[in-house]
């Protein structure tokens, strides 16, 4: 098997190394290579890990990540924000929905490196101090969940939809909430959530 990669060649463990480099503050570990593209100098990251930092739910997070890592995998594997789910991993199901710059995105289809310097909002931020957001409470009340695996993504999609369409029409609901999929079949409850929150009859 390969050597324990937690040791660097200097014999300093990676964790210690990170501590040392932390003292040197904002100096990146690996300076990006600069190349010329369309007459401009642009940085190229990777292969290999590059330092990245994020603002998630108002808090700062940083990690060493390969440029190919998606925002979803960074959230889940690096920062233990596992509410966003990986289901299709290619923008088909919405289980990974988070807000980037207040817009809903499929986190499986955004590279982590691109999500830096923009506010990221995940499902974990919605309920504060154990108190559910009204949309979440409505999900519970209307039993808009069974196994619950699609639920965080749906809650985020509904929140963003309702923010933009406080008085949604049936047509808008059908169009905008078709980007999330549920296998257990909770759409009826979800329609009732939207109906309640937007004060329409709905469902």
């Amino acid at each position: 098997m390969a050597d324990d990669d937690e040791k660097t060649s200097s014999g300093v463990s990676r964790r210690e190394f990170l501590k040392i480099s932390g003292i040197a503050a904002a100096v990146p570990l690996v300076a990006p290579q600069m190349v010329e593209a369309a007459g401009e100098k642009v940085p190229v990251y990777g292969p290999g890990k590059a330092p990245m930092s994020f603002t998630i739910n108002g808090k700062r997070y940083s990690a060493q990540l390969e440029p190919r890592v998606t925002l979803l995998d960074a959230l889940r594997d690096q920062f233990d924000l596992t509410g966003s789910k990986r289901v299709c991993d290619r923008a088909e199901c919405g289980a990974c929905t988070v807000l980037l710059n207040n817009k809903p995105v499929y986190a499986c289809t955004v590279l982590a490196i691109e999500a830096q310097h923009q506010p990221i909002t995940t499902i974990e931020s919605l309920s504060q101090g154990g108190k559910l957001h009204p949309i979440q409470a409505a999900f519970v009340q209307h039993d808009a969940q069974q196994c619950g695996f699609c639920t965080p993504g749906f809650v985020m999609a509904c929140k963003s939809f309702l923010d933009q369409h406080p008085h949604a029409t049936e047509e808008q609901i059908r169009y905008h909430l078709n980007g999330n999929l549920c296998r257990c079949g909770t759409y009826k409850g979800i329609r009732e959530v939207i109906a309640q929150m937007s004060g329409t009859k709905g469902a």
């Binding site: 509410g83 519970v140 969940q145 639920t151 965080p152």
Partner: peptide, 9 residues
């Protein structure tokens, strides 16, 4: 377990 599911926890 509704609350724990909708909150992503």
């Amino acid at each position: 377990d509704g609350a724990v599911k909708v909150s992503g926890h």
